[in-house]
């Protein structure tokens, strides 16, 4: 029978302070101290200043996206040709673009597109990857072989190339770019979840649940799923940065967000490149916004990994 500590670790989403990640076979019973995921994360953030900096940056980004209407000094679509290509000034801290729109306001509103696309794409990709990974890892057999070969085949195509091909079929738009990014995310996530499920189902409490006649959906959802949420969340946070980068790249190539919607990648390709010598600020600020957002999510993903699932470092 499983011990109380094992059951808590399995179903409650808690971590052992000394024992490794919850998916590990080692029971957490003798670890002495158990800490919640929140506390584990807080402890890592306090130890690593880069983790704290990335969390702050993400908070700023999220608040900027939510309160864009309040923070933006001008309407991002309002054009004033009399002030076209104005240098950064007190009135327009990031300057204006070729038709006199305020670049700061467009960068602020652009955070909405980036975060929205990133969150939805990662949400859809993670959910689909999780379902496939759970099914493959739990049932194994032919279903596993078939689905994993499909995942291999999708992974054989580089993510950006696959996203480009999907957007080519569905027509360029923000929604389609988001769907394309979600498809790119699925194989990697499904593999990680599959691995975690294969490991988690070796635990004695799963065996015990099977022995007392628990139904398979209950075993999957109540006993196995809580054990694989740490790797899922870690990978999702790392993917958020990549999703923002792919969205910006697709928009830059003209197959993502379409004008006049303010998107960081689109701002760079439409005006940033065309006027880069006369008005370098048009290229500098949107690019800086993309880099900082991607950097913040990459560093935060690293911090989450260190706090919740150090084993993922190897993969």
């Amino acid at each position: 029978m499983s011990t109380i500590a094992e059951r808590r670790s399995g179903a409650g989403g808690r971590l052992s302070a000394r024992a490794p990640a919850p998916s590990d076979e080692t029971p957490a019973v003798d670890s002495g101290v158990e800490i919640s995921r929140g506390r584990a994360l807080w402890r890592t953030i306090r130890r690593k200043p880069l983790g704290a900096a990335s969390a702050t940056l993400i908070a700023v980004l999220v608040l900027t996206a939510i309160f864009a209407d309040v923070l933006a000094p001008y309407d991002p679509l309002d054009a004033d040709p009399t002030i076209r290509l104005s240098r950064p000034s007190a009135a327009h801290p990031f300057g204006t673009d070729d038709i006199g729109r305020d670049v700061l306001s467009r960068v602020i509103y652009g955070s909405r597109i980036s975060l929205w696309v990133g969150l939805l794409a990662v949400g859809i990709g993670t959910a689909a990857g999780m379902i496939i990974g759970l099914a493959c890892g739990y049932w194994e057999g032919r279903l596993d072989i078939l689905l994993q070969r499909v995942m291999d085949a999708i992974q054989a195509i580089p993510g950006l190339v696959l996203a480009l091909a999907i957007v080519a079929i569905l027509k360029p738009s923000t929604t389609n770019a988001m769907l394309a990014i979600a498809v790119v995310i699925i194989p990697g996530n499904s593999r990680i979840v599959r691995g975690a499920v294969l490991s988690a189902k070796q635990n004695r409490y799963v065996e015990a649940a099977e022995a007392i006649g628990c139904r398979q959906p209950r075993i999957l959802l109540s006993h196995i799923l809580p054990n694989v949420t740490a790797p899922i969340l870690v990978i999702a946070s790392i993917w958020l940065g990549n999703a923002i980068l792919i969205e910006a790249t697709l928009s830059f190539l003209g197959v993502g967000t379409q004008p006049p919607t303010p998107s960081w990648g689109l701002m760079l390709s439409s005006t940033g490149r065309a006027f880069m010598e006369q008005a370098p600020w048009l290229a500098i600020f949107p690019g800086l916004a993309i880099s900082l957002a991607v950097l913040a999510f990459n560093l935060f993903g690293d911090t989450l990994r260190d706090a919740w699932d150090p084993k993922l470092r190897k993969s």
Binding site: T249, F252, A283, P286, G287
Partner: peptide, 11 residues
């Protein structure tokens, strides 16, 4: 890892 190629290329 964080700077997009297209931005770096443009700069």
């Amino acid at each position: 890892l964080s700077i997009p190629d297209f931005w770096l290329g443009t700069l």
